[in-house]
Design a protein around this nucleic acid. Structure first.
Length: 567
DNA sequence: GATTTCACGTA
DNA sequence: CGTACGTGAAATCC
């Protein structure tokens, strides 16, 4: 691990007697040279904070140790600022963590600064790390920078030791999660290629022409509303954007519903033309508001690339997240995602990743046997002597926990046929209910309680039924997090492998979507990139699982637009 | 002005 | 067939 700390005028590379000071203006060149010569694993507080400028200058860093990502694996959750990492490594009370001075005058008395600190040390008198220790405002001068580099190296080494203690794969998980963090920096830098003309056309189809003024915008909106309100004579003043008013409107035409969500209204499509018009209006309104002209203008750059922020892991199970619609672009807009002239997309998505991951995590030999098939539900159905659709629903119900519908008999058969896999799911559920310790296959801690606050009733006392609902929600969350989080680890290991493998072909990953990769490649190297994407899966799955017992499958296609069919 | 609720897009 | 995430508009809280 080679520490890299960037200060205000200088950066320091290395630690102890080997530390080298580099002027900020020469940093990029220094990193480029070391990368070529030594291929180091750069040790950074976070890839996003430290390596963005380097990546921005076009220097590709192959490997790093991202202290924040390592912390998230060790402890779960999302908060991973340097003082928190330091506190957890040194068993300091997290409730006494230093806070960033805000507008509050009392912060002045409350951030530990009332105790005189050693001006050369980033540590406060109470042992906590300063909030701003690694920021240019404090990281100035050679002595401080050298001190930070030494401290960073200690942090990295102790994290590595702690992860080695967690399990056999956790250190490697830190490596691939760090690589994912590097990939996130590059995804933000490079963006997703957009065919602007097509995007404008598709938006116009839903949102109408581009308005030239606020008044025109209001007129176009009213026009859109009229297609619905024409079905409700006498109630033309209804605000379609107000769910309560919409509910009253529906009641007036005889449709009584508890709420106006699309799946609630779906069965009433045929009962009154208003319903059909409203559902179509909702789709158009979604594009007009969220993916309309403003979205295009704000997030698609002059180079016709759609950009948003990326994070390597969310706070719950560890999936990647993306902003500005990169992860939830409506299917009708996908024709606008198009490869540049002379380029293609190599699109690759993992097939049935979650049940296959269940086979890995649980170590169920019989279930692993089913993953030999391209379609794993086929052998499961054969073993249980049931139809494939029933087998599929049973497996999904077992993994995610059903509350409605019934997989009934098939679920019991599943228990008998694959007891090891089913046991793992039950254990995860129980750990969730009992707030027990839980980790993904790669060793990421699943934080129970911290992230689950949203869906839970916030009122103080809960009755028995409510308490039980909270428990079962926690159980389902835990069961899902083990599978989803482990799948996310395999996905990121694969993505990191692909990132390296396709780079010599002049190709780059431009989108990661949980089980799907979009690689932008020169047309001439399409076949090679496609081959590499597949071989990267074989290699990373073998590394991740430690064997070839469970098979993973990937569907690839070479396309010009994201919307084009698979195959 | 900040937070919550509703709704809905993706996997 | 459940979980997760990000986004916008309106309502609600402070």
């Amino acid at each position: 691990m080679l520490p890299l700390v960037i200060g205000d005028a200088h950066a320091v590379i290395g630690a102890g007697a080997d530390a080298v000071m580099v002027a900020r203006g020469r940093l990029v060149e220094a990193v480029r040279r070391l990368e070529q010569r030594d291929h180091p694993r750069w040790l950074v507080t976070s890839a996003g904070a430290v390596l963005r400028t380097v990546a921005g200058a076009g220097v590709t860093v192959a490997r790093c140790w991202d202290v924040a990502e390592a912390h998230r694996i060790l402890h779960g959750g999302w908060a991973a600022d340097p003082p928190r990492v330091w506190a957890s490594l040194n068993a300091l009370d997290p409730s006494s963590l230093p806070t960033r001075p805000g507008g509050d005058l009392f912060d002045f008395f409350d951030d530990g600064s009332s105790v005189p600190d050693d001006p050369a040390s980033p540590l406060r008198a109470d042992g906590h790390l300063r909030v701003d220790a690694f920021e240019p405002s404090w990281a100035l001068g050679e002595a401080r920078l050298r001190g930070l580099a030494d401290l960073l190296l200690e942090v990295g080494r102790r994290q590595e030791a702690a992860l080695a203690h967690v399990g056999p794969r956790a250190v490697r998980t830190a490596h691939s999660e760090s690589a994912a963090a590097l990939l996130c920096v590059e995804l933000e830098r490079d963006g997703l290629p957009v065919d602007r003309a097509v995007a404008e056309e598709l938006i116009a189809g839903s949102a109408g022409r581009r308005p030239g003024s606020d008044a025109e915008a209001a007129a176009i909106r009213a026009e859109r509303d009229r297609a619905v309100l024409v079905h409700a004579p006498g109630r033309e003043s209804t605000d379609l954007r107000n769910p309560l008013q919409v509910r009253e409107l529906l009641a007036a035409v005889g449709v009584r519903v508890p709420n106006t969500r699309a799946w609630v209204l779906e069965p009433f499509r045929g009962t009154h033309p208003l319903v059909e018009a409203l559902l179509q209006w909702r789709k158009d309104e979604r594009i007009a508001t969220t993916y309309g002209y403003r979205w295009l203008d704000e997030h698609v750059g002059p180079d016709d690339r759609l950009r948003g922020g990326w994070t390597a892991c969310d706070g719950a199970a560890g999936r990647m997240t993306a902003q500005n619609g990169l992860h939830n672009l409506p299917a009708p807009l996908r024709p606008a995602i198009a490869a540049r002239p002379g380029h293609v997309f190599v699109r690759a998505d993992l097939g049935q990743i979650e049940p296959r991951v269940l086979a890995v995590v649980s170590g169920d030999r019989a279930f692993a046997e089913a993953t030999r098939a391209d379609d794993l539900y086929a052998p499961v159905a054969a073993k249980l002597s049931i139809d494939r659709p029933v087998a599929k629903i049973a497996v999904l119900a077992a993994m995610y926990g059903q509350r409605s519908g019934s997989a009934g008999e098939a679920l019991k058969d599943l228990e008998r046929a694959y007891p090891v896999a089913m046991r793992l799911l039950d254990d995860a559920y129980a750990a969730g209910v009992g707030r027990g310790a839980l980790r993904t296959f790669g060793g990421r801690r699943i934080a129970l309680g911290a992230t689950l606050a949203a869906g839970e009733p916030s009122g103080p006392p809960v009755d028995g039924a409510e308490a039980q609902a909270v428990d079962s929600a926690r159980g389902r969350f835990a069961r899902n997090a083990v599978i989803q989080g482990s799948a996310a680890e395999l996905f990121k290991a694969w993505a990191a492998t692909v990132r390296h493998a396709v780079a010599p072909s002049g190709a780059e990953i431009v989108l990661c979507l949980h089980d799907e990769l979009l690689v932008h490649a020169p047309e001439s190297s399409a076949a090679e990139v496609r081959r590499l994407v597949v071989s990267s899966l074989t290699a990373s799955a073998r590394r991740w699982t430690g064997s070839d017992r469970v098979r993973f499958v990937v569907d690839t296609s070479v396309i010009h637009r994201w919307s084009e069919a698979k195959g």
